[in-house]
Design a protein around this nucleic acid. Sequence first.
DNA 1: CTTGATCTAGATCGGTTCGGTCGAGATTTC
DNA 2: GAAATCTCGACCGAACCGATCTAGATCAAG
Lengths: 145, 145
Amino acid sequence: MLSQKARYALRAMLHLAAKPIAEPQQIADIAEGAAVPRKFLEQILLELKRRGLVHSVRGRHGGYQLGREPKDIDFAEIIRVIDGPLALSPCASRTAYRRCDDCTDEATCAIRKALIDVRNSTAKILEQHSLADAMADRRKMKPAA
Amino acid sequence: MLSQKARYALRAMLHLAAKPIAEPQQIADIAEGAAVPRKFLEQILLELKRRGLVHSVRGRHGGYQLGREPKDIDFAEIIRVIDGPLALSPCASRTAYRRCDDCTDEATCAIRKALIDVRNSTAKILEQHSLADAMADRRKMKPAA
DNA sequence: CTTGATCTAGATCGGTTCGGTCGAGATTTC
DNA sequence: GAAATCTCGACCGAACCGATCTAGATCAAG
């Protein structure tokens, strides 16, 4: 399961992607638009900023904007920033591999084999979905809005 | 991520699958063979039993045995028993669907769409891996043992 | 029928994570 | 310099996790 925090992050990023990248949007607006508790959203945006996914502008007319073009930000990256590796087990992770300390033989471990299959397919799917794709989908499904 | 408990459960089930289904294996043996803390394993086996994945025999020469043929028990089922639904979000789960309370429009939700893709592919992979397959794999990779 | 091995059940526990809030500080604009 | 904004760290309660302890129920064998 994704954490609630990660779901918030996805929604917030989608909200940012809805407007031109140039104009910064303020925390309060994002919080309202994406239905995320304001103070909690601050934490989330800070983490996203540290990893370069968003950029902040301080001061009076400040706010947050995407750090890159929407087509260059995918779901997998957002989820990894907030929740960590996608894999179901550290021994099946590519970005954060760690051997199971109680695993007797990794080579013949049938469990690991299955988990690696899962992580590969999950990563592939989530990396295919960019913010730009998501926005396009939304427009296609609800053209009147 | 899978919980440690789920990984223990998978290992324990694999251990049970290694011997003929007729002869019950005792908790102590399974604990040692699968490297699972004994008392914790008791809880795990109880849960697996409640869901019919294993069967217990009491008394002197008692123990646990698989509830069905190894080919009829897949990884997905074991994981679901211990950790709950496979999906990354309740709104993307088939076995435990629940609407996101803060979702404005499920139909156009691009996040949900991606998460459903992930859950489908994950379920497919894990349902393809049965205990019997896992044992066969292991034998194939390490024929000398 | 007693003994001892087993399963069953639940209370408990220390630690960590999760979701969320508060308050103060730093930075920029008007 | 006042006002609006982001920044940052401390904090909180509840849930969860991994694991252990204790006590009881059940059965088999001697």
